[in-house]
Design a protein around this nucleic acid. Sequence first.
DNA 1: ATTTCCCTAACGAACGTTTGTTTATTATAT
DNA 2: ATATAATAAACAAACGTTCGTTAGGGAAAT
Lengths: 195, 195
Amino acid sequence: MITKTKLNRKQQIIEKATQLFQKQGYAATSMRDLASYIGIEAASLYSHIKSKEEILQTICFQMANDFFQSLEQIELEKLSADEKLKRAVKSHVIVLTKDSAASAVFFSEWRHLSEPYLKDFLSMRNNYENKFIQILIDGYKEGVFKKMDAKFTVLALLSSINWMPSWYKPEGKLSPEEIAKNVTDVFINGLKIRS
Amino acid sequence: MITKTKLNRKQQIIEKATQLFQKQGYAATSMRDLASYIGIEAASLYSHIKSKEEILQTICFQMANDFFQSLEQIELEKLSADEKLKRAVKSHVIVLTKDSAASAVFFSEWRHLSEPYLKDFLSMRNNYENKFIQILIDGYKEGVFKKMDAKFTVLALLSSINWMPSWYKPEGKLSPEEIAKNVTDVFINGLKIRS
DNA sequence: ATTTCCCTAACGAACGTTTGTTTATTATAT
DNA sequence: ATATAATAAACAAACGTTCGTTAGGGAAAT
């Protein structure tokens, strides 16, 4: 099982790197650091990966794809704006909690990507935020949401969720669904027009 | 004016370092980097500062003090919980926007502090969060706020604000007061019991 | 008024260490 | 026998920091 061993090793490298990048940051994590945690020499890492940055790229774009895919699926459904927002937040939280270490790296370490990856990354993120903004604007047009600064509100909403990886523990008392419900409860009931 | 010149230079170093730490991160910013932006040699920095980490310590604990001071002042006043929360958020945003670069460093780079500074820092932050949590608990007891997970809500609230330094521009259309109002509007009207 | 002295801020050079990565070689497993 | 994965050794570059020195200005002493 040559390929299997190699894939496992590569996966192991990326997983351990994810942990270290989260705890110490990308720049403060050395390849010797990473290697010693795995139990091999730094030079041996290069049998499986091309460079340190390739690891970061893998982590960032894997997460970016996951987020995008989960949101695109929701856009297909025909839902009222508030339902759509609930679903979008729930999906976002689920993706995020599935690998909270990778999410933390995704949110904090992307700036160490070199061009053209940095440009691609930022454009994807912008795109993602715009989809949320559109949901809020639609909600306003439908008469479901108050008048507001949609971009500001989305940034506040996503920020409150995205900070989670720094304190979320899978063994904690709150499930991803409960977290999503808590967040949307606060935000939606503050946005929704009460009759 | 010996002392004045020296103070200005030291201040200049810390200000430029704050900018670079925000943009590139603490670990990815070298002393030669910093020096060249100022227009001197790296070695010359050490006529004014003791070490690279001392700069980070200065930034972090200056901000920590500012946040603490602004909150302690509010605790003295006799206010209803929702009013108190509004005031606390407003103070928080004002401190944060006064130097958003330093705030960004404060929120993202504290993990590079060494002991015992790291321990002190985390204990201060915990303390600060607990003051917010207490406001929410008081609000619940007063019958002003819904039943909720106070810690979770505070983390969500502070996170949505603390992410701001990454996009806040002083020349933007929103003033600190308007930002605070937007945030509290969303959160308070989502929390407050409607009669 | 001139000299001596001290202090600050800057410098170039170098310190020892660590960085990411490459190479040539050996061990392992199929 | 062949392909893969690990190694030790080495690389140039960069790291934070220290060194001895120098230039310049103000204070003190002559």
